[in-house]
């Protein structure tokens, strides 16, 4: 039986040759992302800024009467709603920011949602209300700060672990590539104007988890090679490590991307942004392990000497791996 090999044996691509260029591009993209988020902003969902969102299907119409709907909802006196199609032509989401005075009366967001729902039901007999979200200002602030805190805590925690298990430079490299992935995902969401809500935070966490997994695999090989080839120059050693793990990188990325791409194209419309974020994050995360996490080690002057003073720590790492998985 002949098995498929996604990456031919003895592949030797000089990945690190492009490191300065790739780093420059990444830096530019990161700055552009930050700029986009700062100027255009993120399309925050009601989770994070409060207000209400109603999802409705106009079962008797081929397409939802978006313009008419906008005027009708505006007559309720809460201002103009943001109306977007999702899924089919006759499905829309109607979003409304918090009304004035909502800071004193937290129930206003819900009152507004009820009024809009009633108006829809009264004016369009064929309408089906698929979902109502209403969040008061205080609750949305809590959700936002808790979400961000969780994100930052997770990033800091795993970087600390990498620092303890490897060397401090690896910790810096890991947190840098996580920042890279998260920033670019933020940028993508700003660029496409996709709704940013709590589910997207979960997607970001998945991206972080995956990207880190990828980085750890490359780092593990770098550490192994650093101890094996004490005389090799760093760029060559990184190249060797990346190439040795390339078959695994490609195989894993392809395997994970498959279900995610299926989700993007065939999955529920409600989670389109969520699926897209994850698919995008897997690609960026794979790239960042090779072109961010690895070259940073050169600039931070990691060499075989990095592991010499900590020889006592090294066998310990080895032991942990053994006791966990394989037995000698």
């Amino acid at each position: 039986m002949k098995l498929l090999k996604l990456v031919p044996d003895d592949t030797n691509i000089d990945f690190l040759k492009w490191r300065t260029f790739a780093f420059g591009i990444s830096l530019l993209l990161m700055i552009a992302s930050i700029g986009l988020v700062a100027t255009k902003g993120l399309n925050f969902g009601v989770d994070f800024i409060g207000g209400q969102m109603i999802r409705a299907t106009f079962t008797q119409d081929a397409a939802a009467p978006v313009t008419e709907l906008r005027t009708k909802v505006a007559t309720l006196g809460y201002g103009e709603p943001t109306i977007q199609r999702f899924g089919k032509e006759n499905q829309v989401s109607i979003r409304m920011k918090l009304p004035e005075g909502a800071d004193k009366k937290p129930e206003l967001a819900n009152v507004m949602a009820v009024k809009i729902t009633n108006k829809l039901k009264a004016d369009y007999p064929g309408v089906r209300i698929d979902g109502v979200d209403s969040v008061s200002g205080k609750v949305s602030e809590e959700l936002f700060s808790k979400g961000m805190l969780a994100l930052l805590a997770a990033m800091a925690g795993v970087s600390l672990y990498i620092w303890i298990r490897f060397e401090w430079q690896f910790g810096v490299g890991a947190i840098w590539s996580l920042l890279h992935d998260v920033t670019l995902t933020f940028g993508l969401f700003s660029l496409l104007g996709l709704e940013f809500d709590l589910n997207i935070i979960a997607a970001l966490l998945t991206i972080i988890g995956y990207s880190l997994n990828d980085t750890v695999v490359v780092y593990d090989r770098i550490r192994e090679n650093l101890m094996k080839f004490r005389k090799m120059d760093m760029a060559g050693l990184l190249n060797l490590s990346v190439n040795e793990t390339l078959a695994r990188t490609v195989m894993t990325s392809v395997s994970i991307s498959l279900p995610l791409l299926v989700l993007v194209f065939f999955g529920p419309d409600v989670i389109f942004g969520f699926s897209l974020a994850m698919a995008f994050g897997i690609i960026v995360g794979t790239y960042s392990s090779i072109y961010q996490a690895a070259p940073i080690l050169i600039w931070l002057k990691v060499g075989s000497h990095s592991f010499v003073p900590s020889e006592s720590a090294m066998p310990k790492a080895e032991r942990m791996g053994e006791s966990f998985g394989a037995q000698p």
Partner: peptide, 9 residues
Amino acid sequence: KIVEERSVG
């Protein structure tokens, strides 16, 4: 007071 609602049809 209702400060948050999530209803899915």
